[in-house]
C-alpha cells in the first residue's frame, strides 16, 4: 500500500484546519466585502467576506462545503490576512499562487499555509488549494 503518498498532501496540520476551520461562519449580508466563488470542476462553492477599517481587514470569514484542501487553505488564509492592508494581502496572494504553481516564492511569509506546498504533487487538486485565494484576489481587485 502506498497510502503514505497521501501524507504529502494531507499533513496533520491541514486536516486539523479542515476539521476545525477558523473564521468559518455563514455570511451576514452586511459585510463591506463579499464574494462567492465557485470551483467548476467539483461544484464546491465558497463565500468569503470581510470589512476594511482604516485599510485593515477585520471580521474576515468564509463559508461553504469544500474538500479538506480547500477548507484548510481558506482557514489558513483567513488567519494570515487578519489586520493586513490591501498591498500586504496582494503580496500574500501572489506568493501563494507562486507556491501552488511550484515556482520560487517567499513561503515563510505564508505561515501555516506553506504546508500546502505539497499540492504541487497533486495537479488535480491545485484549484482546491487556490480557490479561497482567488476569491480574495478578486475582492481586492475590485476597487472600493
Amino acid at each position: 500500500m502506498s497510502l503514505h503518498n497521501l501524507d504529502n498532501l494531507y499533513r496533520q496540520t491541514i486536516m486539523a484546519y479542515a476539521q476545525h476551520p477558523h473564521h468559518y461562519k455563514p455570511m451576514l449580508g452586511t459585510e463591506g466585502y463579499h464574494i462567492q466563488k465557485y470551483n467548476p470542476t467539483c461544484g464546491d462553492v465558497i463565500d468569503l467576506a470581510f470589512n476594511m477599517v482604516d485599510d485593515r481587514v477585520t471580521d474576515i470569514h468564509f463559508y461553504g462545503d469544500g474538500c479538506a484542501i480547500s477548507k484548510a487553505s481558506a482557514s489558513m488564509m483567513t488567519d494570515l490576512v487578519v489586520g493586513k492592508n490591501r498591498d500586504q494581502m496582494m503580496q500574500l496572494v501572489d506568493q501563494f499562487s507562486k507556491m501552488a504553481r511550484g515556482e520560487a516564492s517567499d513561503v515563510k511569509s505564508l505561515g501555516e499555509a506553506q504546508v500546502l506546498a505539497g499540492v504541487t504533487k497533486f495537479p488535480t487538486r491545485i484549484k482546491c488549494a487556490t480557490l479561497a485565494w482567488h476569491a480574495l484576489d478578486e475582492l481586492l481587485s475590485v476597487e472600493k
Binding site: 500500500m1 502506498s2 497510502l3 503518498n5 497521501l6 498532501l9 494531507y10 470542476t41 467539483c42 461544484g43 464546491d44 469544500g66 474538500c67 479538506a68 484542501i69 497533486f122 488535480t124 487538486r125 482546491c128
Partner: peptide, 20 residues
C-alpha cells in the same frame, strides 16, 4: 469529502470520478 477520497483512490491506481 468526495474529492479527497478520489485523490486517495488515485494514489492507489483506482480512477473514479468525484464532483457534480
Amino acid at each position: 469529502h468526495a474529492h479527497d477520497l478520489a485523490t486517495a483512490l488515485d494514489q492507489e491506481g483506482i480512477e473514479v470520478r468525484a464532483g457534480h
